[in-house]
Amino acid sequence: MNIFRLTGDMMHLASILILLLKIHTSHSCAGISFKTQVLYLTVFLTRYLDLFTNFTSVYLTCMKIFFIASSAYIIYLMRFPFKDTYNKHLDAFRWEFLLGGAAVLALVFPQKYTVREVFWTYSIFLEMLAILPQLFQLQRTGEAATITTHYLFALGAYRALYIANWIYRYQMGEHVDGVAVLAGIVQTALYCDFFYIYFTRVLRGQRFKLP
């Protein structure tokens, strides 16, 4: 565990708490992609298959349980109490391609052909693209509530910090997963446009609005 990894995990945790705060304070899930949230739950469920069979640390176990439970809870909130605030016409990304594409990549690139490894690889490639429906919706709407942009910033920062974590690990001679690094770099790159507007507008107190 290094400082980049720990800060990255904390940003991931923070992103989910910010999203929950947004939904609860505004009593609305407007601007949030339901598809992205379902993809994240799928990512956690397929990645943490070893949750109850392979104990490594209290930290990992607690975080895994939190990620699964919180993303399931967010989906529940979007599907039931705040269903009326969800606009499915804005959430129009064709996510079948993501689910299918990640499945193909998972069958081509696993380190070993075991159920766990194939699912783990699937989760890595699915996470790589899971933010696309959310970014697509942002693009369509052209603007976003400030708290929603803080959510996206925390999520993007988590990914960027993981890259710093891998560089650190590599230099320390620790094991680094090639597939995870490659997918992580692609995933972080997807946030570039968002980061630019976040830094040049939102952090200067302006509304998030696409040019």
Binding site: R5, D9, L60, K112, W120, N165, H175, D177, A180
Partner: peptide, 10 residues
């Protein structure tokens, strides 16, 4: 004997 790959990241 098959050894599990260790994935220690979240």
């Amino acid at each position: 004997d098959e050894e599990q790959t260790e994935h220690d990241e979240l």
